[in-house]
Design a protein around this nucleic acid. Structure first.
Length: 665
DNA sequence: CATTCGCGGTGA
DNA sequence: CACCGCGAATGC
């Protein structure tokens, strides 16, 4: 198709100072632009004319400003083409913000794929993928680009620790030889996962390819940096500030650096010729983006590795059900430790159920500490720091017996009790029964109290039980990154455990039943992940006591240090129940009428099943739609079409669509 | 929010 | 039957 002549395309210019119409560029005069609008029905490229004056700077991937629906709007120039399909006159690009090609072809394709996977728009994804521009930083002289990335020093195999895994060595070799293996890696406790990741990154770099490494939070990034040592890399984290973040991101974009380490957004880092994508602790919910379309870093990296034919390494001490699915379908291989390595390095785990004998010590009794936990801590304190993991404050408003402070449980199923707002009677979080007329099995009292277990309170109580040792807390407000080798009592919430020099001498996981009792599909998986992350910080053979019933599968998995069998069983359960990742599921949340309207409009793929809608709170309702995994993209397409139709007709109430969200129940 | 589309009404 | 006017649809 050819471009109609200028005069036909260009409206007579408004009476401005300039005389004459603007000229379109002679060569490839049409720019395809992704316009920054959240409206789903506008999620496609729009064509604009490139002014001749902007010919040199209007390069694919650059930021532009265009008049869209009467307003000036930001956008990205996808490509320059000779003509347009659009029947009607094209407008000119208003301005090229800068010629920096910030949207590479690879990331453009990835953003499109992520949007399609999550029933979202490309511009929403680009907002997550591309940091805001910082003009001064962009203008800074670019460092002279190296001819190629530093050849990595020969990998120090003994330090990296990959030999401890069944296929560890061949994984490294494959990367170094330019192949693209995909693996789900179950990391050994006590071993240095940063060293292992660094070795994989170096091997990839040696093959002349780039690496992105995604870690849950800044603390993990800080741990990986020393392992990478002199290997050239940039760390991009949220706490840097916009200028420095953009500076480092540009280094990757401009090909000056081949390894990018960071949190969630690093999954989109514009590393050239990607050879390996890494995600650590993929079960951590920090990897799920809270912004529309709510993509998960593991899924982003899996899509990216697939599209770019790069390797993928999904690692963690525990194993997510989703990663297990990738192994089950044969898409990725399992990188599991040899059994004898586990035996040599895992802590010795002992459960303490409800019936466990409380410590004799008065202060330990007050802290609800069973005897075996108290003894483990006391013995540990002879030789080093000990860790007590407590659930985050306010994480679960638990109920306990008024007198003895033992956990209040459902008389029918032993699930944890909770109070619902406005109701006087506690109900069971597991079976939902109203627990009237219950009595505490140990002291007979029928009164209950709210028990807010938190790090600070627990720390005070434990401090009294071990008066001669320093007590340190680490939690949401005030994270302690590291602790020294001296004996000390460390009280931390999950994810905030300080890394001890030389490992913890003992670990106690308090309130296991509280973690397990959460009304969440993923409660057991999440409990095991948190326990294992804490336990992995223990010295080999250290004593570890978990306050939970040993009959529970997650506790069994911890006892045997077998997260894989647990995850496989979890996956089988999900398949049975019809929940992700065994199926693809989407939730529609919004005002009741809007949710029902959308459900009525949507042309669901065959075999789709609608659950609900059910009230969430107030007027808000939520419905779930599930389809077999291979219908996932059809479902996303249908949901986007339906929400697009709604937004096109300017329906007042919006319905939030989330695909495979973490909080399903 | 600006522009265009498209339909029914209207007056010649 | 051409043209007008207004609400709906569209967005280059």
């Amino acid at each position: 198709m050819s471009v109609p002549s200028q005069e036909a395309l260009v409206p007579a210019p408004a009476a401005s100072g300039r005389k004459g119409a603007r000229q379109a560029a002679g060569d490839l005069p049409v720019a395809r632009v992704v316009v920054d609008t959240p409206l789903p029905h506008l999620d496609r490229p729009f064509d604009y004319l490139v002014p001749a004056t902007a010919d040199a700077v209007a390069v694919p991937g650059c930021r532009v400003r265009v008049r869209f629906a009467g307003r000036l709007t930001d956008g990205f120039l996808l490509e320059r083409v000779a003509g347009s399909e659009h029947r009607g006159r094209l407008a000119f690009l208003e301005r090229v913000i800068s010629p920096e090609p910030v949207l590479t072809a690879e990331i453009a394709g990835l953003a499109r794929a992520v949007a399609d996977r999550y029933a979202g728009t490309m511009s929403d994804v680009l907002r997550l993928a591309i940091p805001p521009r910082h003009a001064r930083v962009e203008a800074e002289a670019r460092a002279p680009a190296p001819v190629s990335w530093e050849p990595a020093p020969p990998a120090e195999e003994d330090r990296s620790g990959w030999a401890a895994y069944q296929a560890g060595q061949s994984f490294l070799t494959a990367l170094a030889e330019g192949r693209s293996p995909r693996a789900v890696w179950t990391a050994l406790p006590g071993a240095s996962w940063p060293e292992a990741i660094a070795a994989a990154a170096r091997a990839t770099l040696a093959s002349g390819r780039g690496v992105v490494i995604v870690l849950p939070d800044g603390k993990d990034v800080a741990m990986l940096a020393p392992a990478l040592g002199s290997t050239p890399h940039v760390a991009i984290t949220a706490d840097l500030g916009p200028a420095e973040r953009y500076r480092r991101w540009l280094k990757a974009l401009r090909g000056e650096i081949g390894i990018v380490v960071g949190n969630r957004p690093a999954a989109f880092a514009p590393v050239a010729s990607l050879g390996l994508a890494v995600i650590w602790d993929d079960g951590d919910d920090l990897h799920a983006d809270p912004h529309a379309p709510y993509p998960h870093a593991r899924e982003v990296l899996a899509l990216r590795a697939h599209r770019a034919q790069a390797g993928l390494l999904i690692g963690g001490h525990a194993r997510s059900t989703e990663a297990t699915m990738l192994v089950a379908t044969g898409w990725a291989r399992s990188l599991a430790p040899r059994r004898e390595e586990i035996r040599a390095r895992a802590p010795r785990v002992r459960p303490a159920g409800d019936d466990a004998e409380l410590a004799r010590d008065e202060a330990a009794r007050a802290a609800r500490l069973p005897s075996i936990a108290w003894q483990a801590l006391r013995r540990g304190l002879d030789s080093g720091p000990v860790l007590v993991q407590v659930p985050r404050r306010g994480y679960l408003p638990a109920l306990a017996c008024r007198t003895c402070r033992g956990p209040a449980r459902c008389p029918a199923c032993r699930g944890p009790l909770a109070l619902r707002g406005g109701h006087a009677m506690p109900y069971c979080r597991w079976c939902g029964r109203i627990a009237g007329g219950r009595r505490c099995p140990s002291c007979g009292d029928d009164r209950i109290r709210a028990l807010i277990v938190g790090a600070r309170r627990t720390a005070e109580e434990l401090g009294r039980a071990f008066p001669s040792f320093p007590v340190k807390t680490s939690g949401r407000d005030g994270v302690l990154a590291v602790v020294g080798p001296a004996p000390a009592l460390i009280v931390a919430t999950p994810g905030a455990e300080p890394v001890p020099e030389g490992g913890y001498a003992a670990v106690v996981l308090l309130d296991g039943w509280a973690l397990l009792g959460r009304p969440d599909l993923r409660a057991a998986e999440e409990a095991l992940r948190r326990w294992m992350n804490a336990a992995a910080l223990a010295r080999p053979g250290a004593e570890l006591v978990v306050l939970a019933d040993s009959a529970v599968p997650a506790v069994q998995a911890l006892l045997r240090w077998d997260p894989i069998t647990f995850a496989e069983r979890e996956l089988a359960d999900r398949a049975e129940l019809g929940f992700p990742p065994a199926v693809r599921m989407a939730t529609l949340t919004g005002p009741a009428a809007a949710v029902r309207e959308t459900l009525a409009d949507v042309a669901l793929p065959p075999q789709a099943q609608v659950l609900g809608p059910v009230p969430v709170e107030g007027e808000v309702e939520r419905a779930m739609v599930r389809v077999p995994r291979d219908r996932g993209s059809a479902l996303a397409r249908a949901l986007k079409a339906a929400s697009g139709a709604r937004s096109a007709r300017k329906a007042a109430d919006t319905v939030r669509v989330a695909v495979d969200p973490l909080d399903l129940i």
